[in-house]
């Protein structure tokens, strides 16, 4: 298959898969996410553990399996 045909085949298959929507079309992020992004990042500002530096340094686990 030529690359062009292959891409066409890929696209067709993707469109046929129900309930699965690609997030990025032509390199752009999906609109719903972009719209929510600011409030989401605000939220992260709020809920991210305070003093990340200290927390990350003190998070030490014993190795498991």
């Amino acid at each position: 298959m030529s690359t062009e045909k292959q891409q066409e085949h890929l696209k067709r298959h993707i469109d046929e898969t129900e309930d699965m929507q690609p997030d990025v079309e032509n390199g752009e992020m999906d609109e719903a996410f972009v719209e929510d992004l600011d409030s989401l990042l605000d939220e992260i500002d709020e809920i991210l553990e305070e003093d990340s530096q200290e927390f990350v340094e003190s998070y030490i686990q014993r190795g498991g399996q």
Binding site: D23, V24, E25, M29
Partner: peptide, 18 residues
């Protein structure tokens, strides 16, 4: 779904950011 993710990874992994 296996085919779906492989197809999308090939085009652009960012398509799978959900």
């Amino acid at each position: 779904k296996w085919q779906y993710v492989l197809d999308n990874l090939e085009i652009d992994p960012r398509r799978l950011s959900r």
